[in-house]
């Protein structure tokens, strides 16, 4: 690849601030993007504890209410977008050579780039598939995710094996990218400097990666274990509770407990919040 020998204004700006940009890039991979990934996967894994525990976690997140959207945009979407944009620039500037130099470090470097690209593509797909942001794109073609009916809608959305495989690849890519990125970040910022410290740090990132991968794969298994009918029933009950607490319906009574299995809960899962 030939680097241009003339400098445009934009290139000059990027050049002057290259260090800052790259360091922010590195940092954003950990905080907030990596942190979010960890929280997200661990939250998901709560589905292994049953649909109700999962719903509890989801409710907790959504207790932010109107704040949720700006928080998501500021702390998740924009950082991911920034990390991805700079990441693609970095990838475009490199020349992977794992064929000539098949060393462990180089393989990891190459995988870091590959998984970064896969993870980004996956995130875009994931948003289309499950997030409210993707609703206009997916229309009615795909089931979405209803936070008030977390397990049941998720179970329906994740119904096919292909979908599970897709999610496994995307999720594992993101986990690898994060865990290896953590190791790499430690070198970039100078947390571990000697080869011995790097080896130790490597174990830390292996453990982090293993835990998150286990959480991610666990949640895929957890979703498959969900009894959709029972989940709906539970979610319906919780929904009623919530409504009652918010004063939308009268306080509970024995009658209400009976009507909790009314047909409303068997409608096709709704999309959006």
């Amino acid at each position: 690849m030939n680097v241009s020998t003339d400098e445009s204004a934009a290139a000059s700006f990027l050049g002057r601030n290259q260090f800052l940009i790259y360091r922010l890039f590195s940092l954003s991979g950990l905080v907030p993007v990596g942190g979010f990934l960890a929280v997200h996967l661990l939250t998901n894994a709560s589905i292994l504890g049953g649909a109700e525990s999962f719903q509890g976690r989801v409710d907790l997140i959504h207790s932010l209410g109107a704040l949720l959207v700006p928080v998501e945009i500021a702390l998740i979407f924009l950082p991911i977008l920034f990390h991805a944009t700079v990441g693609f620039m970095i990838i475009a500037g490199g020349l992977p050579n794992v064929g000539s130099y098949p060393y462990a470090g180089n393989i990891r470097y190459t995988l870091q780039r590959a998984t970064g690209m896969i993870a980004f593509a996956f995130i875009v797909w994931h948003l289309i598939h499950l997030h409210w942001l993707g609703a206009p794109v997916r229309g009615n073609a795909l089931p979405g995710f209803d936070p008030h009916h977390a397990s049941s809608t998720l179970a329906v959305a994740m119904g096919s094996m292909v979908m599970n495989l897709l999610y496994a690849i995307g999720m594992l890519s993101a986990v690898y990218h994060f865990a290896n990125g953590l190791w790499s970040l430690g070198i970039t910022w100078g947390l571990w400097t000697s080869p011995a410290a790097m080896r130790r740090a490597n174990w830390v990132s292996v453990v982090v990666g293993a835990v998150l991968a286990a959480a991610g794969l666990g949640s895929l298994i957890g979703v498959r274990r969900v009894d959709v009918e029972a989940a709906r029933a539970m979610e319906g009950r919780r929904e009623e509770m919530r409504r009652m607490l918010e004063g939308e319906v009268p306080l509970p009574s024995a009658r209400m407990m009976e009507t909790a299995v009314e047909p409303r809960a068997v409608e096709s899962p709704r999309t959006g919040t």
Binding site: G15, R23, R108
Partner: peptide, 15 residues
């Protein structure tokens, strides 16, 4: 080392 083309360009491939 922190100007354009500095240490930040390292990708930790360790080749």
């Amino acid at each position: 080392l922190t100007s354009a083309g500095g240490i930040q360009m390292c990708g930790n491939a360790q080749n």
